[in-house]
Design a binder for these strands. Structure first.
Length: 304
DNA sequence: TCGCAGGTAGAAC
DNA sequence: GTTCTACCTGCG
């Protein structure tokens, strides 16, 4: 099937958004298993020019499949209109030429996004991505070559570390204990992930968060250990489609400071307030574009 | 080798 | 309220 829409699929896939690791890529075709109305459906997506060419296999109608694909890659967002918006602001005007076709890569599974985002804190894209892939392979369900992310009540049962696994099983040699969270390289974030699994199993309903206003959702998600303001905004943006979120980290701080405050040092908290106030419903996209603009244009090296 | 990587928790001003 | 510091781990 064909969807006609401007997008740079590879850029979108590899942009490090904490919704999920990139899909599995072979010769430009990106594939993964996705939930469609409770059924596991395998998608194969390829870009050719301004078209998105895709096939799917599993229990879903064409319309359901297109709707799902449109949600995950945010295909209904009007990029041209957004570029006009950027063009009308002097500070942002040259951004689009460096990341044309970049779109939000939204989470199919919000819980995966929560754990991915917790994992991303004080971490590199490469390492958190690897950790999440290992979690999927260890405890997710397999469909063909692809794995779902484990549900919170399943992740809850996973041992935290070697010692926990050793003490609770009949394994004789502790070096054989590799079926635990820390074995996935998540480090000190393991207990945060465990607690998050508890909370989203019997304290917080994921579906309720979609219905909340931004402020309520932000406060709710901040209750999860390992989730501070930056991670909370990533979860709300990539996991729950709150487009007014403006995830603010050291890089966004440097970029905003450079573009708007003559390089003056301002707190990340102030940058977040500024971004939300200044960009409104475009905040999420502006943040996404700012980060990649800085990467692609060489600004990042200059600011470091 | 040692510092850093798209921050957070906990404690101290 | 704002500022300081330790922190798993893999990679250059």
């Amino acid at each position: 099937m064909i969807v006609e829409t401007p997008i740079d699929l590879e850029l979108t896939q590899l942009s490090g958004q904490t919704s999920q690791p990139p899909w599995y890529e072979v010769d430009g075709t990106f594939s993964n298993v996705v939930d469609v109305k409770g059924n596991s459906v395998i998608f194969n997506v390829k870009q050719s020019g301004d078209f998105l060419d895709f096939t799917y296999s599993g229990d879903a109608s064409d319309k359901q499949a297109i709707d799902k694909l449109s949600y995950i890659f945010d295909l209904d967002f009007d990029l041209d209109k957004f570029y006009r918006y950027l063009g009308n602001h002097a500070e942002l005007a040259e951004i689009p030429e460096f990341c044309s076709g970049l779109r939000l890569f939204l989470a199919d599974d919000p819980f995966e996004c929560i754990i991915s985002s917790i994992c991303s804190a004080n971490n590199s894209i490469k390492r958190w991505t690897k950790s999440i892939c290992q979690i999927k392979e260890n405890w997710g369900d397999r469909f063909g070559n692809y794995y779902t992310f484990p549900k919170s009540n399943d992740l809850l049962k996973v041992y935290l570390d070697d010692e926990g696994e050793f003490n609770s099983s009949d394994i004789q040699d502790i070096s054989m204990c590799t079926n635990n969270l820390k074995s996935c390289g998540v480090g000190y974030r393991a207990p945060y992930m465990r607690r998050a699994s508890e909370m989203f199993t019997d304290e917080i309903d994921l579906h309720e968060i979609f219905k909340m206003c931004y402020d309520e959702a932000f406060e709710t998600i901040l209750e999860v250990p390992g989730v501070g303001p930056k991670v909370a905004d990533c979860i709300l943006l990539y996991g729950f489609n709150f487009r007014e979120a403006f995830p603010s980290d050291v890089w966004i701080k440097r970029i905003v400071s450079h573009l708007y405050f003559e390089g003056k040092d301002i707190s990340v908290a102030k940058v977040r307030e500024f971004g939300m106030e200044e960009f409104g419903k475009n905040a999420g996209y502006v943040q996404l574009y700012m980060f990649h603009y800085a990467r692609m244009s060489g600004l990042m090296k200059k600011l470091k």
